[in-house]
Design a protein around this nucleic acid. Structure first.
Lengths: 150, 150
DNA sequence: TCGAAACAGTACCATTTTGGTCCGGTTTCC
DNA sequence: GGAAACCGGACCAAAATGGTACTGTTTCGA
């Protein structure tokens, strides 16, 4: 249904939980508790988010996770990409070449353009906005990005 | 990868093929041939597209399929919905209620807003534009729709 | 110095979804 | 009546997804 995976959904929850405590280093257990998710699942998510450079990790006793950047500088696109890889609706929106129909395929261009627009929408929504609950015109930046990408 | 299923991708190809012959009733075999897809697959796609009211079907000898509406009146959103159901990035963007975390979940509103924006993007791209290959600012309508939906 | 807390990495498994195929039935034209 | 075509299911194999477990490594503190 054109949906993001459940893990990605969870990841946004986890990120908002971390963002709620900007000054603290939270343990996986704390985060799992606040997010109301299973601990192993949260652990897996944090690992991915860490690799993507979205959170900083600290090992050892009193270790845990913290936002790597301010919430204003983390977009929904960042989170989605961390979990699902590059954003693109179709195979050929991401990597060209391995579709032998490409030459006579009239739709690939359209898909690419649409993918770009959606990327803009995602990039226009920041973690700070998600935290605020009532986001302020998330589609505005999206519109511009889409325009530029078309 | 936030991607649409391969079947949906194929469906757009099939639709453009049909749209290329506005006056004719094309058999599944003809469509499969032009789209360079397997016949059973195309048959399945046409079935779904028919149910969604996007194509009209004619039975019997010389039967086949034809666009139910002019290409200008069919959007990418129509095709995606026909194949994948309602557009919404997360479970709770579509059906509320069966997520017990909804009450204290701060992200559901954001997801809904983003889903609306993406729906706008998809709705702004018509089959006619896809046919033209080089779509004219597909994001424009999207922007407006997104704005309205936010 | 040792042990506990906490992250890191990897491997694994069950379930669901996806993509694809097939078959019997029905309609329409010749 | 027979052939061409669509209709409606059922069905199956393969892949992705979600979730779990286990073993290491790092760091703090007693």
């Amino acid at each position: 249904m054109l949906r993001v995976s459940r893990l990605t959904d969870y990841a946004t929850v986890v990120m908002t939980v971390i963002a709620t405590h900007p000054a603290d280093v939270l343990s996986t257990a704390q985060i799992a508790d606040e997010a109301r998710l299973e601990l192993p699942t949260v652990s897996k998510l944090l690992k991915l988010l860490g690799h993507a450079g979205l959170v900083d990790s600290f090992r050892g006793v009193n270790g845990g996770y913290r936002l790597a950047r301010p919430a204003e500088a983390i977009s929904l696109a960042d989170i989605v990409e961390a979990l699902e890889g590059p954003i693109g609706l179709t195979e050929c929106s991401i990597a060209q070449g391995h579709c032998d129909r490409q030459s006579q395929c009239g739709v690939s261009g359209s898909w690419r353009s649409v993918s770009g627009a959606i990327d803009g929408v995602l990039r226009g929504m920041t973690l700070a906005q998600m935290l605020a609950g009532r986001p302020t015109a998330p589609a505005k930046g999206a519109a511009d990005a889409a325009q530029a990408n078309a």
